[in-house]
Amino acid sequence: MPPPQTTETAADRCRRYRRRILDISQSGVPLHIAPAFSCLELVDAVYHDLMRRSGDGGSPDTFVLSKGHGCLAQYVVLEDLGVLTSEQLDSCGRPGSILGSHPDYGVPGIEASTGSLGHGLGIAAGMALADKVRGDDRRVFVVLSDGELQEGSVWEAMMVAPSLGLSNLVALVDLNDFQSLGRTSETLPNFYPIVDKVASFGWDCRDVNGHDNGAIVEAVRGRTGTAPTMVLGRTVKGKGVSYMENVPIWHYRSPSAEEYQQALRELEAAAEAEAARA
């Protein structure tokens, strides 16, 4: 992966991350590619634009990936930040590796073990509660999936967090409209619309394009600050690679060598088209 350019936009950066994820996918280890592609801009925005950085590159803020199966998105950002090494990412899922298909607490940069859905919001709320009780100026960011919203434990935490006044808690939901077996909106159609449900629990809830860095950052920065915030990011599962987009099988499948080349060509073409527009 080439070193980040100072003029690199969030879109450039995320394209670079997608290429890196595709590279890792060629190791032969099955990994969740499409779920990482859908939440990539959300994860990227948290790390690069929303978490505050101290002089040594550390942060008082915390990131928890509640949709743990999207962890390739987190791994590539942590690699970029120098928290994980290239060797660690290259060996992901292989014998002796510290990295698997779900984030594991104790690995550098991983603040909570996730993988089973419906756990991250409660843990993040506990962290935010601790910070509030101690009067520490820390923010806790947590990324969930829309399938995960079907877990009852999420709604317990949704009920409790505003009542505890956890205005230092920011949740971002990867609303890609897919779960393992099909469209989320077709699985439980009466669950929609979501934004009013979240707001009715006392959250500051905003609905944005989840692949638009500017929109994500603006939604979080523009929060009221009096309640926990939930940004619903509308996304496309498998975003950036045509044959993966909205095709359920790519939830848990790695591209063949030929498919890998095609994916790289598509990302390249998208970059060129964007440059031409600019």
Binding site: A112, G122, I123, A125, L129, A130, S153
Partner: peptide, 21 residues
Amino acid sequence: INVGVAEQTMIGLAAGLALRG
């Protein structure tokens, strides 16, 4: 804190609190 009749969140909060010391 009485979290209400919400035991899953009680344990989740406890874990988050413990992660903060």
